[in-house]
């Protein structure tokens, strides 16, 4: 059974957390294997519930999209270019075990197990707006932790001006990587101050559970004031660099996709307007919504780009 919307009161808010977790572990231990086996054939294995607190201050109050919408309408070309492809095909991805390589201009480098990377971080839920460069949008309850907290642990040097994120490259797990018309692996990057911004999230879950494969399991980026493509999925490498990296879509179509990818209703995509968006779930005859500067996060992030010509640095 998939959760359709966040309940107003969580069990964790009523039961003391330790008791709640122990009980969960006990039930999981008793039923875990059995429940998974009872799923209909072809169904993805159940996603484990996460322990987290809700960050209301950094969440929007709009109604989140349903779990079905968020997990069945994805751009994840490693599993196909149709929006429905990732939900169909991403079962070949194995997010456990997972390791992440830390490289480049940092004192702490090397390959780390994902659990070791996650251990020091308390997870929180943040309900963010999501705006795709294709002019559609959603509202998504992510679970994750601030990227900045993680970056600090690796002690980037003074040379580290950008953070680059690389998605897994493995055609056995990501079948579409066999197609030649894409420069795999997918690479994205943030400027250091963007990476350190409190809104920038390393997401590991949504709707209180681990990330489904099609949403970028087990670790993905989420900078909510940027177009969706900026947010690299299934990250295996984080590299600190001095020079601005070329991000994948910028390599593919430099006149259409820039490095910054900030949501901006005033700067159109060459082939379509960015002034408004279709909000998924609003229905067949719904009106388009106005697109907001920096996707509605202007108060928090506009200062990062002060004095920059956003028409040029799109």
């Amino acid at each position: 059974m998939l959760i359709r919307r966040t309940p107003d009161i969580r069990p964790s808010e009523i039961t003391p957390e330790a008791v709640f977790l122990d009980r969960r572990r006990l039930i999981a231990g008793l039923l875990g294997a059995g429940a998974a086996a009872a799923l209909p054939a072809g169904e993805a294995p159940a996603l484990a519930a996460l322990k987290y607190t809700r960050n209301a201050k950094l969440s929007v109050t709009e109604k989140p999209n349903t779990f079905e919408e968020i997990t069945n309408y994805n751009n994840f070309y490693e599993f196909g270019t149709d929006k429905e492809d990732p939900a169909r095909n991403a079962h070949t991805l194995r997010p456990k075990p997972w390791s992440v390589e830390i490289a480049g201009e940092a004192e702490v480098r090397g390959k780390f197990n994902l659990e070791d990377i996650l251990k020091p971080h308390a997870l929180e839920e943040r309900i963010y707006r999501f705006r795709c460069v294709e002019a559609w949008s959603m509202v998504i309850p992510w679970v994750g932790f601030p990227l900045g907290d993680m970056v600090k642990r690796f002690k980037p040097t003074s040379k580290a001006k950008y953070v680059e994120f690389t998605t897994l490259l493995d055609p056995r797990q990501m079948p579409e990587q066999r197609s030649a018309n894409f420069p795999w692996p997918y690479v994205e990057a943030l400027r250091m101050d963007e990476a350190m911004h409190p809104l920038t999230l390393m997401a590991v879950g949504l709707y209180g559970r681990e990330l489904p494969n099609q949403n970028g399991a087990p670790l993905r980026l989420m900078a909510p004031w940027k177009y969706g493509f900026k947010n690299a999925k299934s990250i295996v490498r984080i590299r600190f660099v001095e020079k601005q990296p070329r991000n994948t879509w910028n390599v593919l179509a430099p006149d259409e996709y820039g490095f910054y990818a900030n949501v901006n209703p005033k700067v159109d995509h060459p082939r379509w307007s960015q002034a408004s968006e279709r909000h998924i779930g609003d229905g067949f005859f719904a009106k388009r919504r106005e697109t907001l500067m920096f996707n509605g996060y202007a108060d928090q992030v506009a200062s990062l780009y002060q004095g920059m010509d956003l028409r040029r640095y799109f």
Binding site: N65, E69, N72, Y73, K83, E84, W136, R278, I280, F284
Partner: peptide, 19 residues
């Protein structure tokens, strides 16, 4: 989508029915 027909896989237009 408008509830005028029972929902069935054939008539499921997905998350973005307009597109």
């Amino acid at each position: 989508l408008g509830g005028l027909l029972p929902s069935m896989p054939l008539f499921d237009l997905g998350a973005d029915p307009v597109r």
